[in-house]
């Protein structure tokens, strides 16, 4: 079976750091920043395990602010 490779892009300025995407990700791909904050002052979600993402879109679906864009490609 072909493996899916995914990539998430977080609109960090739109992100409010609610952490729901982090909870929703089955593979712990995302995490909130611990130090860095965006212009609004929130710790924002970012990709920490880039290679693990399968592009399942769970994080993006639960994101209340529509901050996450997801790409997915079949690994040849």
């Amino acid at each position: 079976m072909a493996k899916m490779k995914g990539a998430t892009v977080v609109n960090i300025e739109r992100c409010k750091g609610c952490n729901l995407c982090v909870v929703a990700c089955p593979l712990n791909v995302l995490a909130l920043t611990t130090k860095n904050v965006n212009q609004k002052g929130y710790n924002y979600a970012h990709t920490v395990l880039e290679d693990t993402c399968t592009g399942c879109t769970s994080c993006a679906i639960v994101c209340p602010d529509g901050c996450i864009t997801v790409y997915r490609k079949k690994e040849e």
Binding site: K5, G6, E50, G55, I61, V70, Y71, R72, K73
Partner: peptide, 17 residues
């Protein structure tokens, strides 16, 4: 696979409506 290769318009599966 390079991340740039995945992040192509044809591979888009979710974005803000």
């Amino acid at each position: 696979m390079d991340i740039k290769e995945i992040m192509q318009p044809e591979n888009l599966v979710y974005k803000k409506p």
